[in-house]
Design a binder for these strands. Structure first.
Length: 461
DNA sequence: TTTAGGG
DNA sequence: CCCTAAA
């Protein structure tokens, strides 16, 4: 509560500064005013729904008043996502506010993301948002999935140190807009909404990247046109491709993940409530059967691979040739797209899992113990364990850098790793389904020999 | 489809 | 973290 209020204050202060600075950009916004006017016509009923959703659990002085300022429910969702500071964004009042002020506010929405990520505020916010997604009824009006898509972005992005820390801010919003588009394409209904949404995405992107020079160049109307003219699967893919191309690889990945989730939902008619409770990839919801889960996962992978393929095949579009983003594209082939530090609790969980299921049962461990960590694949678990083994045995570690990994861990955990290494030698013996919980413990040196053997084999090649 | 191993 | 081969 205090925390939140503090954030708001901080934010408001910043806003004042920005308004001051960006006032000079006001004239450039002129032709957008019409666009905004259209958006303002968004049906009230929808944002009443949002209102209900967002209010649940979050009391906010002045929120009730501010919500009335929002003319577009979807924007509202985005703002909320940006850090729960929605009450500070009277986005809808374009006609009443001066352009300069609005400009500042709009840009600020983008900024909040980063601010929150940096301050570590994102996570609590995520939880809050996720809860909303879980309990909210907005999905009944066809709004829910959209909201959730943002939530999904929020969580995946904010948890990644690299994503939120190093991004210039362009990733988050563009990503959101992209996801939204896909949502509507999957749904294949409500063109009006889709169009409106696309417009928002484009608009905001523009804002974000805007420099006084760039303003004239942005072809928002083209996007709109595309969406209206062919609203089929291809256009969807194409659009997502375009969006992806504009962003760095992190954004691409995130987009795929979320499209995955959403399309699953659409094709299988899973209830929105379930979807909202599973914002991250393919964890099994309580209400899902295993069969359903597997089917969805299969489809999701297919879809993701299609997206990936397309974005590789035709990366060039009129927009991606924009001179302003060449740097981002160079990062595209970066090998490690999403790197996430292993937390202590994750390592502990992994060790627990291995001690329970034995080494090599990576999918089991993932399914049971890492079901909520979408970003940890069974392979990740195995890799981590491999690193732990190498580090714990120590002898073959040439570089201290690698031993840092162990230094960060408590001694007790290191001990457990070593013990586990003795009980469950890493390259699991074939046919050994489950290592007996209690074994005549081989000597520690024996286990280290095994590890050394493994390391040596590696070194030879 | 999962695991192992290499990069 | 990613990719590929093998099981």
């Amino acid at each position: 509560m205090d925390h939140e209020a503090h954030s708001c204050n901080k934010f408001v202060n910043m806003k004042s500064q920005r308004v001051k600075v960006e006032g000079s950009f006001a004239p450039a916004l002129e032709d957008e005013t019409e666009t905004i006017a259209h958006l303002l016509a968004e049906p009230k009923s929808e944002y009443v729904t949002v209102d209900g959703v967002l209010c649940c659990g979050k009391e906010n002085a002045g929120k009730g008043v501010d919500i009335e300022d929002f003319s577009c429910a979807y924007d509202f969702g985005l703002n909320t996502y940006s850090g729960g500071l929605h009450s500070a964004h009277p986005r809808g009042r374009y006609d009443e506010l001066e352009f300069g002020v609005l400009d500042g506010l709009l840009d600020e929405v983008d900024e909040v993301e980063d601010i929150h990520a940096i301050n570590g505020l994102a996570s609590p916010c995520d939880d809050y948002l996720l809860d909303i997604g879980f309990t909210g009824k907005a999905s009944e009006l066809g709004f829910g999935p959209c909201e959730k898509s943002h939530l999904g972005n929020s969580s995946s992005e904010s948890q990644s140190p690299r994503l939120s820390g190093s991004s210039n801010g362009a990733v988050g919003i563009s990503e959101s807009s992209t996801v939204t588009i896909q949502e509507f394409e999957c749904k294949n209904n409500s063109i009006d909404k889709a169009v409106t949404h696309e417009f928002h995405g484009g608009f905001r992107r523009k804002k974000r990247r805007r420099t006084p020079v760039e303003d004239n160049v942005y072809p928002a109307s083209i996007n709109l046109q595309n969406l209206e003219l062919d609203n089929d699967e291809k256009s969807l893919s194409k659009k997502s491709k375009e969006s992806n191309e504009r962003e760095n690889c992190s954004a691409v990945t995130a987009t795929q993940d979320h499209s995955k989730v959403r399309c699953q939902n659409e094709h299988h008619h899973v209830s929105p409530g379930i979807l909202s409770s599973v914002p991250e990839e393919d964890s099994i919801s309580e209400n899902q059967t295993l069969a359903e889960f597997r089917t969805q996962r299969k489809l999701a992978k297919k879809h993701a691979s299609i997206l990936a393929l397309e974005s590789d095949e035709q990366p060039i579009t009129s927009e991606s040739e924009d001179d302003h983003v060449p740097k981002k594209r160079s990062r595209k082939h970066d090998r490690r797209k999403h790197q996430r530090m292993w937390t202590l609790s994750e390592v502990t969980t992994l060790v627990d899992g291995i001690s329970e299921y034995g080494v090599g049962r990576w999918t089991d461990i993932k399914r049971v113990l890492f079901s909520t960590s979408a970003y940890r694949t069974p392979i990740d678990l195995r890799d981590k364990w491999r690193n732990l083994l190498r580090a714990s045995c120590g002898k073959k570690m040439k570089k201290e850098v690698e031993q840092k990994e162990m230094r960060a861990l408590p001694k007790s955990l290191v001990r457990r790793v070593r013990e586990l290494a003795t009980v469950h030698p890493y390259p699991r013996q074939r046919g050994k389904k489950f290592a007996p919980p209690i074994l005549p413990t081989p000597s520690k040196s024996a286990s280290c020999d095994l590890i050394r053997k493994y390391v040596r084999r590696k070194n030879r090649s």
